[in-house]
Design a protein around this nucleic acid. Structure first.
Length: 824
DNA sequence: AGCACGCCGACT
DNA sequence: GTCGGCGTGCTC
């Protein structure tokens, strides 16, 4: 009786699943569960669901419920993709935390967390109808083109067809009309699902008796090629090998293999292989020095009572060796480790080193890996096979099992914060939350802690361990200032190079030294200015001066890519007196070259390293001594260890110091200290030469004296005084709109709405430094939340509901409102 | 995010 | 008059 009743109620109500979709939408979507899936449905499993009138997406079940949605008819799910949940409940909880804390949708988190190969979506395909016959004269030129393109093909992605034919927007209409005349068919298909890679293996037929084998060998005397194949297989383990490998190794032809297969002497079969090959070099060992050993012991002791430890150690104290030892111990205990690095491209040396210690148990999570490769790493992590994953912030989402420790190298790096797109998370902070959920430890290391982290370490929230003894014979660089003001006053400047820098550069070759020259990209880019009226060529879409490129002799916008060619004449006063202002790396390279022609100078920035291997090539060139000077942007500061660099130089420190941002001093300290660490790492003491108009500047003096603590003290006082982090939490709201007036009105309105409730916490709207990008005008509103008295989650909720309220208002529907929690 | 619909300007 | 641009709304 009860059974019958249950059945009836299931029939009446049905079972439903609430699903996250990998889209930037806030809500979950509810689907009906057909009877055959009742048993299989559970949170964490992936499902295929229809969405909109054609698309199919991969979603993840968040809840299984038995309440029928009241306002709409739920669609059925198409299928369940996993036998076991891909995402466990703890991970789902973690995702929700990120979504709530960073004010984005769960779908945004899902999108960031799952590799593309695990969230397949349908794509529209088109193909010719069967037995289609058409008369070209009945059709127009473009219709014929489409039909021609489809000829002989099973199916073509509609998006590919569109790009292939370079069609404009009438494309879809033509497709539609062809479809209505039954000339073509359209259907949805899942493209690019993960496919394991399979290779063909060959093996000596195990059914052959020994006598038969001998007989065959005898018979094959006259066929030396086939004989050779057989002999090489006998040498292999299990008398089997991958076909492609064995042909390569012994220079065999596949035709001789084929005849052996035909004769049934060999058999063939497919075997799944890893796409990611590990170059298992011989593992090596090392020994810690006394200081490192002490640090290690201290860290372990602190871990007994604290979750998070900050290892504050100067550059070149060998922090990496301490990490390695800790990782080893974790692995020995059956735990696994996540090792976060700021940017993989700049960490090659570290990765090579780690590979030597951990070989196959470690894997790098690289954004350049293909879809399928990423899925393989994911699966390996999921299965517990991997013990160490090294990667950038996104590696935080790999499903590593049995997590015991997260290492965050160069904790202060701002690349740990994702700002461009949701989820706008800070990997350092999110890692700490993850570790807490998994009862794992966190070790952060840096020579220049962020103010927030050091504050937490001093206040006892984190433990603090110091490592100050320099490794080997390394000496800290001598930091000197070259006074631009003095140079200018005494006519000693050559372009932008001070006499001090020139004289150092001119003796480089004589002393067989190398140098690194740094120029901040943001601070000073070359632009074209009229020397009579001061008019500057600006981008037509963005509020920003166009950057001048010498080699292509044109102007380009860094934000939208707009280019402009004809640039000899001032468009305001008409004079032919445009001159280059500002100095990019290109101009600096040129100036050095002009002054000291025999110096070999390499330029290293986003432009010169855009091509895939250009980066490595340039690095190698410099490393092997084929160049004397490396000129570059931020990229030269980080992680590059060149043993022969005697000097690093900064073209203009004032641009760094004066950058309008409460973190600009902190960043200057970090940058210059790191740069100093790049110079003179052998027996000889190197120098960091800083060009500035203000050598007496407090911050520069702290840098010169390597006095982080002194610097920290001034900073923390200032942060407290102006109520900046770590004494407050920030939410930056960016508003974007095409209409300038609407933006003005809307941003004022939002600020007022927020102020009504939050009062003095709300700052702005403010016009950012670059106030228009791609024809969108931009305003910022900043919310400072009090750390002690405010409830951040309540404020965030209020902010989001205010967004909704505002978007409901007429004219404000087309606003982009982008919240960024803990902005950089 | 994608996709359809519907409203306006510039062209065969 | 139509083509094709873009703003608006909706997706279980």
């Amino acid at each position: 009786m009860t059974e019958f009743f249950d059945l009836l109620s299931a029939e009446e109500q049905g079972l439903y699943v609430e699903v996250v979709l990998p889209l930037p939408l806030k809500k979950l979507f509810t689907y009906r569960l057909p009877n055959e899936f009742f048993e299989l449905a559970m949170p964490g499993k992936r499902v295929f669901v229809p969405f909109g009138n054609r698309k199919v997406y991969t979603g993840i079940i968040v809840n299984v419920v038995n309440v029928k949605p009241s306002h709409y008819e739920a669609l059925n799910i198409i299928s369940i993709l996993d036998d076991n949940p891909l995402i466990d409940s703890q991970t789902l909880e973690y995702w929700s935390w990120i979504a709530d804390y960073y004010m984005c949708g769960l779908g945004d988190v899902m999108n960031a967390a799952l590799p593309a190969g695990l969230k397949m979506a349908s794509e529209t395909f088109v193909a010719l109808s069967e037995d289609v016959e058409y008369n070209s004269s009945d059709l127009d030129e473009r219709e014929v083109k489409i039909l021609e393109a489809l000829k002989g093909k099973e199916k073509v992605k509609i998006s590919e067809l569109e790009t292939q034919l370079k069609s404009k927007s009438s494309f879809l209409k033509i497709i539609k009309s062809l479809y209505e005349r039954d000339l073509i068919v359209m259907f949805e298909d899942i493209s690019d699902a993960y496919k394991p890679k399979k290779l063909l293996k060959i093996k000596i037929n195990p059914d052959l008796t020994e006598q038969e084998q001998e007989q065959i060998l005898n018979d094959l005397q006259s066929k030396p090629k086939q004989f050779q194949v057989l002999m090489s297989l006998f040498a292999e383990k299990n008398q089997e090998a991958f076909k492609s490998e064995i042909t390569k190794k012994h220079n065999l032809s596949s035709s001789s293999i084929k005849s052996l297969l035909d004769k049934n002497i060999l058999i063939s079969f497919e075997e799944e292989v890893d796409r990611i090959k590990e170059n298992v070099e011989e593992l090596i060992d090392y020994e810690l020095n006394e200081a490192q050993n002490n640090a290690l012991d201290e860290i372990k002791k602190e871990f007994e009572s604290k979750q998070t430890v900050l290892l504050y150690g100067d550059i070149a104290t060998g922090k990496t060796f301490v990490y390695i030892q800790l990782i080893k111990e974790q692995i020995e205990r059956g735990k696994s480790v996540l090792y976060l690095v700021p940017e993989l491209a700049l960490t090659q040396q570290l990765i090579n080193r780690l590979e030597k210690y951990f070989g196959n148990e470690m894997m790098v999570y690289h954004s350049k890996f293909s879809k399928n490769e990423k899925v393989e790493i994911w699966k390996k992590a999921h299965s517990g096979e991997l013990k160490l994953i090294v990667g950038p912030r996104s590696a935080l989402f790999t499903p590593i099992q049995n997590l015991g420790l997260i290492v965050i190298d160069e904790e202060h790096e701002n690349t740990y914060k994702q700002s461009e797109k949701a989820p706008r998370y800070h990997a350092r902070d999110a890692a700490i939350v993850l570790a807490k959920m998994k009862s794992a430890k966190v070790l952060m290391g840096t020579a220049t802690p962020s103010i927030e982290t050091y504050h937490n370490a001093l206040s006892g929230k984190y433990a603090l361990v110091e490592l100050t003894e320099l490794y080997g014979n390394i000496k800290k660089a001598d930091i000197r200032f070259a006074d631009i003001k003095f140079n200018v006053a005494n006519h000693m400047m050559t372009g932008i190079l001070t006499s001090e820098l020139v004289s150092e550069l001119s003796v480089l070759q004589e002393h067989k030294h190398q140098a690194i020259v740094f120029q901040n990209r943001k601070g000073f880019v070359p632009m074209l200015e009229c020397s009579i009226c001061g008019w500057v060529s600006k981008c037509i879409n963005c509020d920003i001066a166009l950057t001048y490129y010498k080699y292509s002799n044109n102007l380009r916008c860094h934000y939208c890519g707009y280019t402009q060619g004809n640039i000899s004449k001032c468009q305001a006063c008409g004079n032919q007196s445009m001159s280059i202002q500002g100095y990019g790396t290109e101009r600096i390279t040129e100036e050095i070259q002009l002054l000291i022609p025999e110096l070999r100078v390499i330029r290293f920035d986003q432009d010169s390293t855009r091509q895939k291997h250009a980066f490595k090539k340039l690095l190698h060139e410099f490393e092997s001594g084929q160049a004397d000077v490396l000129v570059g942007t931020q990229i030269v500061v980080k992680g590059l260890d060149f043993s022969n660099v005697y000097m690093s130089a900064v073209i203009n420190a004032d641009h760094l110091l004066n950058f309008p941002d409460f973190r600009s001093f902190e960043r200057t300290f970090q940058l210059l200290t790191q740069l100093a660490g790049r110079a003179g790492r052998r027996e000889e003491r190197g120098i960091l030469l800083v060009q500035t108009r203000n050598p007496e500047h407090d911050v520069l003096q702290y840098i010169k004296n390597y006095d982080y603590k002194g610097f920290y003290n001034t900073q923390i006082t200032e942060r407290e005084q102006f109520n900046y982090p770590p004494f407050s939490r920030l939410i930056k709201i960016t508003l974007k709109n095409k209409s300038f007036e609407d933006l003005q009105k809307g941003s004022a309105m939002l600020a007022n709405l927020l102020k009504k409730q939050l009062g003095h916490r709300v700052l702005g709207p403010e016009t950012p430094f670059i106030s228009r990008i791609n024809n969108y005008h931009i305003r910022n509103i900043l919310i400072k939340m009090d750390l002690e008295n405010d409830k951040p989650q309540a404020i965030k909720k209020f902010v989001l509901s205010t967004f909704e309220y505002m978007l409901e208002e007429y004219k404000f529907k087309n606003f982009q409102l982008i919240p960024d929690v803990d902005p950089n």
